[in-house]
């Protein structure tokens, strides 16, 4: 175990990072997010270094998914700013890719794996035009990268959970982005899929991409990722895995010392919805 910095140091280090660097693919400043007026993320500050694999870890209900959803504008922010290479999300959108949680869609939907991957190309194709051969080939090669080419014409409900996850990954690859957000890609997948995802992540890194992954398996964090954000309603610590991924920080993230903060969030929710 490396000698870990004390909480004050790591937090101060965080605060003194340059804000809104044009190099940083993602900089979050003073972001607070509330669900039904209940704060789920308090005052998050984070600058993602370029060309890294970054994990977001934390206990259930810590706001991991919320963090990336609010960066992407899927959940409104109560306050704070998010910038991508110094630009707003709208301006930078074409360079951002997204893998939603697998459970968020109906896998009985009548499309094939290839159709789903082609959806990643839609923004390049534009309104009303059909998917051309060129884009289909691109989608096929993305399926190839996740080892799913032979399943291209399979209807998605006939794929296993891991295969469905790989289809989602392929769709994100088809977006040809520079920054990827992945929501729990490793959740409930088989060993083959886990290997395929890790391979894709490493390849993305080789190609100078940045990937931010919501992750739940603490054991694999040091193997798979360069950077880690320890999250529990606020950023407990963030930085390189070797510096930040310490037992003390993990204890702070997962330990029960924050019950009062959670209670406070409840109270804020009650107060602002008017049910005092």
């Amino acid at each position: 175990m490396p000698v870990h910095p004390t909480i004050q140091e790591s937090s101060q280090g965080l605060a003194t990072r340059p804000e809104h660097s044009a190099n940083s693919p993602l900089s979050i400043h003073a972001m607070t997010v509330a669900y039904h007026r209940k704060p789920v993320l308090w005052d998050v500050d984070y600058d993602a270094p370029p060309n890294k694999l970054i994990a977001i870890v934390g206990p259930n209900g810590a706001g991991k998914s919320t963090l990336i959803k609010s960066c992407l504008g899927l959940i409104p922010r109560a306050s704070g700013q998010v910038e991508f290479w110094g630009l707003s999300y709208k301006q930078a959108r074409s360079r951002v890719g997204y893998v939603p949680q697998r459970e968020s869609v109906d896998w009985d939907f009548p499309v094939s794996a290839l159709d789903v991957v082609c959806m990643g190309r839609y923004r390049m194709i534009g309104w009303c035009k059909p998917v051309s051969k060129k884009h289909k080939e691109a989608a096929l090669s993305c399926l190839d990268q996740v080892g799913m080419r032979e399943f291209a014409n399979r209807q998605i409900s006939q794929l296993s959970g891991g295969q469905q996850q790989r289809v989602f990954l392929a769709r994100a690859l088809a977006q040809e982005a520079d920054l990827y957000f992945m929501d729990e890609p490793f959740a409930g997948v088989d060993a083959a899929t886990e290997r395929a995802i890790v391979q894709v992540l490493r390849k993305l890194k080789e190609n100078n991409k940045t990937v931010i992954v919501v992750h739940h398996d603490l054991q694999t964090v040091p193997d798979y990722f360069d950077e880690v954000i320890l999250l529990n309603m606020r950023v407990v610590a963030a930085g390189e895995v070797s510096d930040v991924f310490t037992s003390e920080n993990l204890h702070k993230t997962y330990g029960g010392r924050l019950t009062l903060l959670a209670e406070a969030a409840e109270a804020v929710a009650r107060a602002s919805s008017g049910n005092t």
Binding site: I7, Q8, A15, P39, R234, R257, L258
Partner: peptide, 16 residues
């Protein structure tokens, strides 16, 4: 207890 940086707590405390 919650690991906030001292220069970040004012706004949060303001709500609380």
């Amino acid at each position: 207890n919650a690991g906030f940086a001292p220069d970040h707590v004012h706004d949060t405390a303001e709500q609380l």
